[in-house]
Simulated assay, not measured.
Amino acid sequence: MDDLDTGLIAELRRDGRASISELAERLKVSRATVRTRLERLKEAGEIAGFIVLTRADISEAPVRGLMMIGIEGRGGDRIMARLTGLPAVTAVHSTNGKWDLIVELATESLADLDEVIRRIRNIEGVMTSETNLLLSTRRATSRRALP
C-alpha cells in the first residue's frame, strides 16, 4: 500500500458513501485511478467490506455496561438466543476463560440497567455474572477484519 491507497482508505472512513468522482477530486487523481485502486484493495483483502451505521448505532444510551456471564452446562445457544431478544442487549459475545459470555448493555437509566441485570440473572442456566459500567468509549481509527 502506498500513500494514495492510504489516502483512499482514509477518505472512505470519513465518508463511506462518497462517489468515485468525489474521491477522485479529494485525492486529486482521475476517477479511473480511484476505481482501479479500490478494486485492487478489495481483491487484496485490504478492504474487507463496507458497513452501514444506523442512528441507533451512533446514539449512545446514557447508561452502558458490560456483563460477563458464567453459564452452566451446554445451554449457551439457548441463553444467547434469550439475551439477543432483550432490547437493552446490544451485542452478545462468546468467549473463553473465566466467563462464557460477554454482553453489551445499553439503557436509559441505572434503574433500567438494574432490571435488565435482574432479568438476565434469572435466566435458567446463568450461574454467575459480573457487570461493569462503561464510563467512556474511544473508538479505534482502524479495524482489521479477521480472515
Rank of each mutant, 00 (worst) to 15 (best):
His93Leu: 15
Gly65Phe: 01
Ile69Val: 10
Glu108Asn: 12
Glu25Tyr: 09
Asp100Ser: 05
Glu22Ser: 10
Phe50Cys: 03
Leu38Asn: 03
Glu124Lys: 02
Asp3Asn: 07
Arg78Thr: 07
Arg13Cys: 00
Val103His: 06
Ala32Lys: 15
Ala88Ile: 14
Ala81Pro: 03
Met80Cys: 14
Arg121Lys: 09
Ile123His: 04
Thr54Ala: 02
Gly76Arg: 11
Ser30Ile: 03
Leu38Glu: 04
Ser21Glu: 14
Ser30Phe: 14
Ile120Asn: 03
Ala88Met: 09
Glu104Cys: 05
Arg55Met: 01
Gly45Trp: 07
Arg74Val: 07
Glu11Trp: 03
Asn132Lys: 12
Thr54Leu: 06
Asp57Glu: 04
Asn96Leu: 15
Met80Phe: 09
Gly65Pro: 01
Met67Ala: 02
Arg55His: 14
Arg40Leu: 11
Ala106Cys: 06
Asp57Val: 00
Ile102Trp: 13
Ile120Thr: 01
Met68Asn: 12
Asn132Ile: 06
Asp114Val: 09
Met80Pro: 05
Ala18Leu: 03
Ala111Tyr: 15
Ser19Val: 02
Ser30Asp: 15
Gly76Glu: 10
Arg17Thr: 06
Pro87Met: 13
Ile20Gln: 12
Ala88Gln: 14
Asp15His: 02
Leu66Gln: 05
Ser59Cys: 04
Ala91Trp: 04
Gly76Asn: 08
Arg64Cys: 14
Asp112Thr: 10
Leu53Trp: 00
Arg64His: 09
Gly70Asp: 15
Leu66Ile: 10
Arg35Pro: 13
Arg37Gly: 13
Arg82Asn: 11
Ser109Pro: 05
Thr54Val: 06
Asp77Tyr: 10
Glu22Asp: 14
Thr84Ile: 10
Gly16Phe: 00
Leu83Pro: 02
Ser30Lys: 07
Ser94Pro: 07
Leu135Asn: 09
Ile79Asn: 15
Thr90Phe: 06
Ala32Arg: 14
Glu108Arg: 08
Asn122His: 08
Arg64Leu: 01
Glu130Pro: 05
Arg17Pro: 01
Gly97Phe: 10
Asp100Tyr: 01
Phe50Asn: 00
Gly65Ala: 03
Val89Gly: 05
Glu25Ser: 12
